[in-house]
Design a protein around this nucleic acid. Sequence first.
DNA 1: AAGACAACCAAGCGCTTGCTTGGGGTGTCG
DNA 2: CGACACCCCAAGCAAGCGCTTGGTTGTCTT
Lengths: 193, 193
Amino acid sequence: MQAPLFDPDKPRDRLLAAAARLFRRQGYAATTVREIGAEVGILSGSLFHHVRSKEEMLFAVMERVIAAMLADLRAELSRAEGGEARLRALIAVELTYLHGPAADATAVLFHEWRALSADRQAVLLDGRGAYFALWDQVLAEAGGAMDPAVLRQFLHGALAWTSFWYRPGGALDLDGLTAQALALVQGAALPLR
Amino acid sequence: MQAPLFDPDKPRDRLLAAAARLFRRQGYAATTVREIGAEVGILSGSLFHHVRSKEEMLFAVMERVIAAMLADLRAELSRAEGGEARLRALIAVELTYLHGPAADATAVLFHEWRALSADRQAVLLDGRGAYFALWDQVLAEAGGAMDPAVLRQFLHGALAWTSFWYRPGGALDLDGLTAQALALVQGAALPLR
DNA sequence: AAGACAACCAAGCGCTTGCTTGGGGTGTCG
DNA sequence: CGACACCCCAAGCAAGCGCTTGGTTGTCTT
């Protein structure tokens, strides 16, 4: 994890952080620009001094997460040696984003994708593609019997879903959760038949 | 799978089926009652002859899926003999609902939960609880090393996420997908360390 | 034949939505 | 001191929202 996604000193960033928080809690469509304004202490009209439209906020939030996740995953993978370490890096980066300081923005990226217009989805597709290409590479290296693409979808789904039930600070910390996910994919979930 | 969730002969059921379709495609908040009316060929006002409010449609859709899934899972489990068969039943029922005739309603249940008011969420909690109690029971019987609650969340997340990428009719059919999920949870994803 | 009922239309109500406009206060820098 | 961004408010617009109203059809029952 490098620099935080949003700089509290920049008004526009404070706005985006607030938008991410509300988009996550209520969903994009159910969140009004008046609520976002209130969250940072300005009126809804003043909000458009920093941003061209409501959707631009959604786009900006997603754009930043994608770029940051991709950079972080690349850094972690270049540092990791051995198949298990690389696999752990995959999971750790995803879970760190989902439950660390960037939790709101990451949850929005994963769960509000369809709220974004098709044009803007297309702009972000390159970044998403590069990110998952790294996944496929690591999973293929691991050389399991399962189709890497299917395994990637299963794993990504299982991790993305944690944002609905897992809360850090409980009995299970982030490292523990990472270990559990690693165990799942390494085949330690249930005893072999 | 017993009787279909919605009876095409009943106008109210046709409405609910259309609502489920649109809620799934666009999300609950982003769907208007005018669109739902148009989907069945009536005006938006006439819609309220069958239903008290827009949210009642969401509730009705979810209620039916929960009841049907619970009944089907109970039936399948009572028919299954042995740990692996019971495990497969868990996965098969979930995937059948997610990608069979009830796909729209099931996706809505899984992905639009927070759009439902807290009061109505509470009404449905019993059914959800009973359903997942069966999961925990089967997973505990399987006797793996992983915490059954965490494993349940991982598995449920991985399966629920299939509604974003899996489409029946391709190279991988539903039985194949079920087998892959079973393999994941049985530890055949990657070779052991 | 008459009544009852379900199903729908046409019109529109009150309210909220995303966004625009015009203007004013505050600080920085030449 | 004046100029110039920057940031924000006050007010409001057009469009769309969920939902209500009063009334018209066609079908079925008695």
